[in-house]
């Protein structure tokens, strides 16, 4: 099978301006992936499916991944005017100091597609698409018109992650009930507090347990 670089070149030849990037996978599996621009994604997908040599007719797996906003603390060199007493005289002196700066890297939702070829029996080719952010610009083009197998899997991602697939024929919640408001697979989802605890070895669970017990105690106190 072609390497990722060759596939990228083929895509760029077929879909001008596709702007595909390669995302390296540093692990031993070395399944590198192609990051698509949402505007051209459907064209690229059609090309991958219909190209005689690639013939990626089989979309196996669609995964949603949530990458929340990351707070990055880094040391930044800044030049400052400081007041100092030099030789008994107060002066303004320029000085370079290192200051920790907090920078928020915006998060995004990502959808990963694993493609195989049923006729040529090769694969996987991994495609990725990213939304602009996690709150309002969460639209991505749907791959269901190209591969039917995306139908339920994209609905699942809509349900659990909140990615809105434009062009999907029937985008509804699939696993949770209609009327449910949250997207539970997101990393910042807060579960309903209905959990009775036994001591476990997990710190996170123990913290939850303490909070739960406190709430129950509070309710009992209020009831009396």
């Amino acid at each position: 099978m072609k390497t990722v670089e060759e596939i990228k070149a083929a895509i760029e030849a077929a879909v001008p301006g596709a702007g595909v990037e390669i995302v390296q996978n540093p692990g031993p599996a070395a399944q590198h992936s192609l990051l698509l621009q949402p505007e051209h994604a459907v064209d690229v997908a059609k090309f991958l499916r219909d190209d005689a040599e690639l013939a990626l007719t089989f979309l196996s797996n669609v995964t949603g991944v949530d990458w929340p906003d990351k707070e990055i603390t880094e040391k930044v060199k800044v030049t400052k005017m400081v007041t100092k007493t030099v030789d008994g005289v107060e002066q303004q002196v320029e000085e370079t100091v290192e200051e920790p700066r907090k920078r928020v890297e915006p998060g995004y939702l990502e959808v990963v597609y694993h493609l195989y070829s049923m006729t040529k029996k090769h694969g996987p080719v991994v495609l990725r698409m990213r939304t602009k952010n996690r709150t309002d610009a969460v639209e991505l083009p749907s791959m269901t018109p190209v591969w039917r197998s995306a139908e339920f899997q994209e609905r699942e991602i809509f349900d659990l992650f909140g990615v809105v697939f434009t062009g999907h024929p029937d985008l509804r919640r699939i696993l949770m009930w209609e009327g449910f408001k949250d997207h539970p697979m997101r990393r910042d989802y807060v579960e309903p507090d209905d959990y009775d605890y036994e001591p476990t070895a997990h710190d996170a669970v123990l913290a939850k347990a303490t909070a739960h017990q406190a709430r129950i105690a509070e309710q009992k106190g209020a009831g009396q």
Partner: peptide, 21 residues
Amino acid sequence: EPGEHDLEPAANTSVWTVPVV
């Protein structure tokens, strides 16, 4: 009833009470 975040009510208190630890 299925609610917006959880079932409503979360338990039927006439058959079940919060266990005392």
